[in-house]
Lab assay of single mutants.
Amino acid sequence: EETVVIALYDYQTNDPQELALRRNEEYCLLDSSEIHWWRVQDRNGHEGYVPSSYLVEKS
């Protein structure tokens, strides 16, 4: 079962390993094994790492 997370803030990045976030957008959580950086996928299928503190699990 996939976990959906919501971005609390915008996040901009130039790092190809990371993914930009848009506030209030939903993302699919792929990997939360790292404490500070979670791997997520956006609705267009793009994947990357984002700061975990910018996300909240959708209830």
Score class of each variant (00 low, 15 high):
Gln17Thr: 11
Tyr9Gly: 09
Ser33Thr: 12
Glu2Ala: 07
Asp42His: 04
Asp42Tyr: 01
Gln41Lys: 13
Glu18Arg: 14
Glu34His: 13
Glu34Val: 12
Gln17Gly: 12
Leu21Gln: 01
Arg43Asp: 15
Asn44Thr: 14
Leu30Gly: 01
Asp42Gly: 07
Arg43Gly: 12
Gly45Asp: 04
Gly45Lys: 09
Ser59Thr: 13
Pro16Ser: 12
Asp42Gln: 03
Lys58Ala: 08
Leu29Gly: 00
Asn14Ser: 11
Tyr27Asp: 00
Glu2Pro: 04
Val50Pro: 02
Asn44Tyr: 10
Thr13Pro: 15
Trp37Phe: 15
Tyr49Asn: 13
Leu19Gly: 01
Trp37Asn: 10
Trp37Gln: 14
Tyr54Ala: 11
Arg23Ala: 09
Val56Leu: 15
Gly45Asn: 05
Glu47Thr: 07
Ala20Val: 13
Glu57Asp: 05
Ala7Cys: 03
Arg39Met: 09
Tyr27Thr: 01
Thr13Cys: 08
Arg39Asp: 02
Ile6Lys: 11
Ile35Lys: 15
Cys28Lys: 15
Tyr27Asn: 02
Ile6Gly: 02
Val5Gln: 04
Val5Glu: 01
Asn44Cys: 11
Val4Ser: 07
Ile6Asp: 01
Ile35Gln: 12
Ile6Arg: 08
Pro16Ile: 10
Gly48Tyr: 03
Glu34Phe: 10
Val4Lys: 09
Asp31Trp: 02
Thr13Trp: 02
Glu2Gly: 13
Tyr49Phe: 11
Val40Cys: 08
Gln12Trp: 08
His46Gly: 13
Tyr11Val: 02
His36Glu: 13
Val56Pro: 02
Trp37Tyr: 12
Ser32Thr: 08
Asn24Phe: 06
Asn24Val: 01
Gly48Ser: 02
Lys58Phe: 12
Glu18Gln: 08
Gly45Met: 05
Trp38Ile: 02
Glu18His: 11
Arg43Leu: 11
Gln41Arg: 15
Gln41Met: 09
Arg22Gly: 07
Tyr54Met: 10
Ser32Asn: 12
His46Ser: 13
Tyr11Lys: 03
Glu34Ala: 14
Glu57Phe: 09
Asp15Met: 10
Trp38Phe: 07
Tyr9Asn: 12
Glu57Cys: 08
Ile6Tyr: 09
Tyr54Trp: 07
Ala20His: 12
Thr13Ser: 11
Asn44Leu: 11
Ser52Thr: 08
Asn14Tyr: 09
Tyr27Glu: 01
Val5Phe: 11
Leu21Tyr: 01
His36Cys: 05
Arg22His: 06
Gln12Thr: 13
Leu29Val: 11
His46Asp: 07
Leu19Asp: 00
Pro51Met: 03
Glu2Val: 09
Arg22Glu: 14
Trp38Gly: 01
Glu2Tyr: 08
Ile6Met: 07
Val5Leu: 10
Cys28Thr: 13
Arg22Ser: 12
Leu29Ser: 02
Tyr49Glu: 05
Tyr9Ala: 14
Tyr9Pro: 01
Cys28Pro: 03
Asp31Lys: 04
Lys58Gly: 07
Ile35Met: 14
Gln12Phe: 09
Glu1Trp: 10
Val4Ile: 14
Leu19Ile: 12
Pro51Ala: 01
Asp10Ile: 00
Leu21Val: 12
Glu26Ser: 09
Leu55Phe: 09
Val50Lys: 00
Leu21His: 03
Glu57Met: 06
Gln17Lys: 15
Gly45Glu: 05
Asn24Ser: 12
Pro51Asp: 04
Ser32Arg: 13
Trp37His: 14
Arg23Cys: 11
Asn24Arg: 06
Arg22Tyr: 06
Asn24Ala: 10
Glu34Tyr: 09
Asp15Leu: 14
Ser59Ala: 13
Arg22Asn: 10
Ser59Ile: 10
Ser33Trp: 03
Thr3Arg: 13
Ala7Arg: 00
Asp15Glu: 14
Ser32Asp: 15
Gln12Leu: 12
Tyr9Ser: 13
Asp15Lys: 15
Ser59Met: 12
Leu8Lys: 15
Glu57Asn: 08
Val5Ala: 07
His36Met: 06
Ser59Phe: 07
Ser53Val: 06
Ser52Gly: 07
Ser53Ala: 07
Asn44Lys: 11
Leu55Ile: 11
Ile6Asn: 03
Val40Gln: 00
Tyr54Cys: 10
Val4Pro: 07
Ile35Phe: 09
Arg23Asp: 01
Thr3Gly: 05
Gly45Ile: 02
Leu29Ile: 05
Tyr9Thr: 12
Glu1Val: 06
Gly48Asp: 00
Glu25Lys: 06
Asn14Met: 07
Asp10Trp: 00
Leu8Ala: 06
Leu8Pro: 01
Asp10Ala: 04
Ser53Glu: 09
Asn24Ile: 01
Leu30His: 03
Tyr49Arg: 15
Ala20Asn: 14
Glu26Ala: 06
Ile35Arg: 15
Glu1Gln: 05
Asn44His: 11
Lys58Thr: 05
Asp15Asn: 15
Val5Arg: 04
Ser53Leu: 06
Glu25Pro: 00
Pro16Glu: 12
Leu8Gln: 08
Ser59Asn: 04
Asp10Glu: 05
Thr3Asp: 09
Cys28Gln: 08
Tyr49Thr: 13
Ser52Gln: 08
Arg22Thr: 14
Gln17Trp: 09
Tyr27His: 01
Val40Lys: 00
Asp10Cys: 03
Ile6Thr: 15
Asn24Leu: 10
Pro16Arg: 07
